[in-house]
Design a protein around this nucleic acid. Structure first.
Length: 221
DNA sequence: CGTGTTTGACCCGCGC
DNA sequence: GCGCGGGTCAAACACG
């Protein structure tokens, strides 16, 4: 596989200024359960996964990572009739952070925000702005724990990371984004290198529902 | 002007 | 069939 350092040039610097950042990654089946407020909800999953309150710098030591390739996702336009449902890999990151927007190095455009049932926090919808890239993500805070942000990714990026290391020069922030994230931008590129590796693995297993845990080589055991 | 957010309206799938 | 909830669209708007 390709060199992650080349894809994520910032992966060596964990400049999280939101000091209380932790992360779990879950498959979307579990995430769906969480959303439905069933007994085996998200918080319970944290315990099951055995990696509660990980700091981002410790992810290499104990992070668990699961994905699925068979979630049904509507095409970009959910309005057309007779659309064949395409399946994309879908992943949910759980991060403990004071900010919603994780600086993953890609450029996202917000295209919607919705109030979610049983959650006091709205869910935000983002789309990758790269031409031809149809990757989407959803960002939502847990109502039970306002410090936890769940970021769900739909699809895989088919292009290199767009944002160089110098956020100030490349990440042209809108005033809105600046308000919410410029001061506390979180560099989680090392986490997203995991995402890339496993999504690639998933793409090779299109007929299987579940994917084995992945251990990123470059992050060590 | 380019880029991005906001937000109400709209569409669709699903459960009852 | 109907209502609800999730996801998306698009016009209006903000800002450098």
């Amino acid at each position: 596989m390709e060199n992650h350092q080349a894809i994520f040039p910032c992966s060596s610097s964990s400049t999280s200024s939101a000091s209380d950042l932790s992360l779990n990654m879950v498959n979307s089946h579990a995430y769906t359960e969480f959303q439905a407020h069933k007994p085996n909800g998200f918080l319970g999953l944290m315990t099951n996964m055995g990696a509660p309150n990980l700091r981002v710098n410790d992810v290499s030591q104990s992070q668990r990572f699961v994905g699925t390739a068979t979630n049904e996702v509507k095409s970009s336009s959910g309005k057309k009739k007779g659309d064949t449902k395409i399946r994309k890999p879908r992943y949910a990151f759980q991060t403990r952070s004071q900010v919603d927007i994780l600086d993953d190095g890609y450029r996202w455009r917000k295209y919607g925000q919705k109030a979610v049932k049983n959650n006091i926090f709205p869910r935000s919808y983002y789309r990758c702005t790269h031409q031809g890239c149809n990757v989407k993500k959803q960002v939502q805070r847990l109502s039970k724990d306002a410090g936890v942000v769940v970021t769900t990714y739909d699809g895989m990026h088919s292009h290199p990371i767009e944002k160089p290391c110098d956020q100030k020069s490349i990440y042209r922030m809108s005033p809105y984004r600046a308000i919410h994230s410029s001061a506390l931008a979180i560099d989680v590129t090392s986490i997203f290198s995991l995402y890339t590796e496993v999504t690639a693995a998933v793409s090779d297993r299109t007929n299987k529902d579940e994917v084995q845990f992945a251990k990123p080589k470059h992050l060590g055991p």
